[in-house]
Simulated scan of single mutants.
Amino acid sequence: MKFTIQRDLFVQSIQDVMKAVSTRTTIPILTGIKLIASEEGITLTGSDSDISIESFIPVEEDGKVLVEVQETGGVVLQAKFFSEIVKKLPGTDIEMEITQGFQTVIRSGSAEFNLNGLDPREYPHLPQIAEEHVFKMPADLLRALIRQTVFAVSTSETRPILTGVNWQISDSQLTCVATDSHRLAMRTAPIEESLSEEYNVVIPGKSLTELSKIVDDTTDPVDIVITENQILFKTKHILFFSRLLEGNYPDTSRLIPSESKTTMSIKTKEFLQAIDRASLLAREGRNNVVKLATEVNNSVEVSSDSPEIGKVVEHIQTSNMEGEELRISFSAKYMMDALKAVEGTEITIQFTGAMRPFILRPLDDESILQLILPVRTY
């Protein structure tokens, strides 16, 4: 194998596949990156058995030559050293050559590195997915769906199914739900293709987080293929495979209250900043709790106190308030996470009582919902 490639492109491609490479793996070869040079271009692969990422750099694109392949072949190189070396090479182009026994020479500018490589045939094969039922989604929408739900997955392994995001597809609509049983994030989006099958799968939160770092914030389409135990996201030059979590996701629709006793509309940024300030003192106390109480004149009081440090009280004007008086306490962190995920300058919050879950939505937008369970303090 011998080829010359643009350094910047190579660095980006390596960084993409590195997101799937784990240092903790029972299969030693998976700590490496597989490189294959063909007449079409260079393919890089990284995997940790749960996530596999393949990145392709074509020989030429839009009339520009990106890679010159003098000799085809393949090698597996230790990911940690290989990625650091390529990042720090001095020249704009990199030449790579494999000699006897997978010894790899990397040259750029005045620098030359020799790395010990492994046989690419020993690298596990990527999942084979029949692309029968494909649906497309703009990359920026996919990123938004992930950003607005993945933060609410559970980090505890006691219920592994809750460490993933539940994707349900039916009637040309995708519903994404994440919950750690103290809060819930939900986002819906239409799907243009009419899929013959309905889907109900759980994608590991970790996979989605890594995917969102790779997908560009553009309207370019991402092809999505779901099988029994894998999901594939396919962009122009990247294949991103993730295993699906096994088990049944709990029915969360029952958690979402259908009626409310107190409703308010409030400016998102103003409310977020007030909660942030209140949490400065709440952090020291028990569990980062902030209190909210309705007042006359359509305003609310946000407060928190920590016996050892002091207390904070702030009054915020709402643009609209209806229903019963309310005093409620909740986790400042959960509220701030939810407010950051909700798009829109103004939100509606619907409460069903001091100890019942409450929901936040952007004003006049039913596609996003955040639910939080209160904390007992009053």
Rank of each mutant, 00 (worst) to 15 (best):
Thr294His: 10
Phe56Asp: 05
Gly285Cys: 06
Arg283Thr: 11
Phe82Met: 03
Ser52Trp: 05
Val76Asn: 00
Leu255Ser: 09
Ile372Leu: 12
Thr219Pro: 03
Ile203Lys: 06
Val313Arg: 13
Gly109Glu: 07
Lys267Ala: 14
Arg254Phe: 03
Pro374Ile: 00
Leu184Trp: 08
Asn288Trp: 04
Ser303Pro: 01
Val76Gly: 01
Gln317Met: 07
Ser47Ala: 14
Leu30Asn: 09
Thr262His: 08
Ile106Cys: 06
Gly247Glu: 08
Phe56His: 11
Asn298Gly: 13
Leu272Met: 12
Asp171Trp: 03
Ile256Val: 15
Ile27Phe: 00
Lys261Tyr: 02
Glu54Cys: 06
Ala20Arg: 02
Glu193Pro: 09
Gln230Ala: 09
Ile29Lys: 09
Lys340Ser: 15
Leu369Trp: 08
Gly164Tyr: 07
Val165His: 04
Thr31Ile: 07
Asp365Met: 10
Lys340Gly: 13
Thr188Asp: 04
Ala185Leu: 07
Thr268Leu: 10
Glu270Ser: 14
Thr348Lys: 12
Ser194Phe: 00
Glu322Leu: 11
Val302Ile: 15
Thr25Asp: 10
Gln128Glu: 15
Thr345Tyr: 05
Leu145Tyr: 00
Val290Gly: 08
Gly41Asn: 00
Phe135Ala: 10
Ser367Pro: 01
Arg121Val: 13
Glu97Lys: 14
Thr252Gln: 08
Ile161Asn: 09
Leu363Pro: 02
Ala144Asp: 13
Ile161Glu: 11
Ser13Gly: 12
Ile328Trp: 05
Val59Glu: 09
Ala37His: 00
Gln128Tyr: 11
Asp171His: 11
Gly353Ile: 09
Val17Ser: 07
Thr175Glu: 12
Lys80Leu: 11
Gln70Gly: 02
Ala178Thr: 08
Val302Ser: 05
Ile42Val: 15
Thr227Asp: 04
Phe240Glu: 08
Lys291Asn: 12
Thr163Asn: 14
Leu141Arg: 15
